[in-house]
C-alpha cells in the first residue's frame, strides 16, 4: 500500500478534530493552548501534503514555506498566550477557562 494524499489529509483532519475538541471542552487554559498548537500542526500537515502531491513531477516549496511561517507564528502565539495565562493567574489565582468570563455582556 502506497501512502497518498488522502492519508495525510485524514491524519490532518483527525488531529484537527482532536485539537478542536480539546480547545472547546477543556477547562485548563494551558491545555487549551496546547490544543490550539495541535490544530495549527494539523493545518501544517495538510499544507505540506498539498505542496508535495498536487503538482506531480515538480518540486514546489510554497506549502513548506507556509508551514514554517505557521510554526513561527505558533511560537509567538504560545509565548503571548502563556504570558496572558500567567498574568491571569496572578490576578485571579486560577487558569480555569470557564471562570474567566469578565467579557460577559
Amino acid at each position: 500500500m502506497s501512502i497518498g494524499l488522502e492519508h495525510y489529509l485524514v491524519l490532518s483532519a483527525i488531529l484537527f478534530c482532536i485539537g478542536m475538541y480539546g480547545a472547546l471542552v477543556k477547562r485548563n487554559a494551558v491545555v487549551i493552548l496546547m490544543c490550539i498548537e495541535i490544530m495549527l500542526n494539523a493545518a501544517n500537515i495538510a499544507l505540506v501534503a498539498f505542496s508535495r502531491f498536487l503538482v506531480p513531477g515538480t518540486v514546489v516549496l510554497e506549502g513548506q514555506v507556509f508551514a514554517i511561517f505557521v510554526i513561527v507564528v505558533a511560537a509567538a502565539e504560545a509565548a503571548v498566550g502563556l504570558a496572558i495565562i500567567m498574568a491571569v493567574y496572578r490576578t485571579r489565582k486560577t487558569v480555569d477557562a470557564s471562570e474567566i468570563d469578565l467579557m460577559k455582556g
Partner: peptide, 13 residues
C-alpha cells in the same frame, strides 16, 4: 441581546 454575551470564549468558539 446582551444575554448572548456570556464572556466564555469556549462557548463562542
Amino acid at each position: 441581546i446582551r444575554q448572548a454575551q456570556t464572556g466564555r470564549l469556549q462557548a463562542y468558539g
